Simulated assay, not measured.
Amino acid sequence: MTWNGEELDIDAYLARLGHTGKTEPDLETLRTLHREHVAAIPFENLDMMLGRPVPLDLPALQDKLLRRRRGGYCYEQNLLFAAALERIGFDVAGLGARVRAGATSTRAVSHMLLKVEVDGEAWHCDTGFGADGLLEPIPLQGGVEMQQGEWRFSLHEEDADDGVMVLRTWRPGDGWFDLYAYTQERRLPVDYVVMNHYTSTHPRSSFIRRPVLQKAGSEVRRRLVGDLLTLTRPDGTADERSVPVGELMDVLDREFGIELDAEDSAELIRVHYAGA
Rank of each mutant, 00 (worst) to 15 (best):
L268I: 06
E255I: 09
V243Q: 01
R35S: 02
S218Y: 15
N196Q: 11
G163M: 03
L231N: 13
R87V: 08
R67Y: 09
S205A: 01
R168I: 03
N4I: 09
P42C: 07
T127D: 06
I258V: 14
L8R: 09
E185M: 14
A238F: 06
L58M: 08
K22R: 00
Y273Q: 11
N45V: 13
E145P: 05
P244C: 06
H272T: 15
M1N: 14
V194I: 06
Q214K: 04
L65F: 01
A12G: 03
G163E: 11
R68D: 10
P244S: 00
G149D: 11
A83G: 11
M195G: 02
E24N: 12
P25L: 02
V190M: 14
A12N: 14
D227G: 14
V118N: 14
R70N: 06
E117C: 09
R210A: 14
R69N: 04
D227E: 14
Y73G: 00
A15C: 14
G21D: 01
V225K: 05
L27M: 09
S218E: 14
A101S: 08
E255K: 08
L95D: 00
V225R: 10
R223W: 03
R204T: 04
E185T: 15
Y192P: 03
D178K: 12
I138F: 03
P42N: 01
V251R: 04
W123V: 05
A40S: 09
P211I: 04
T20K: 02
R223T: 09
E267P: 05
G226C: 12
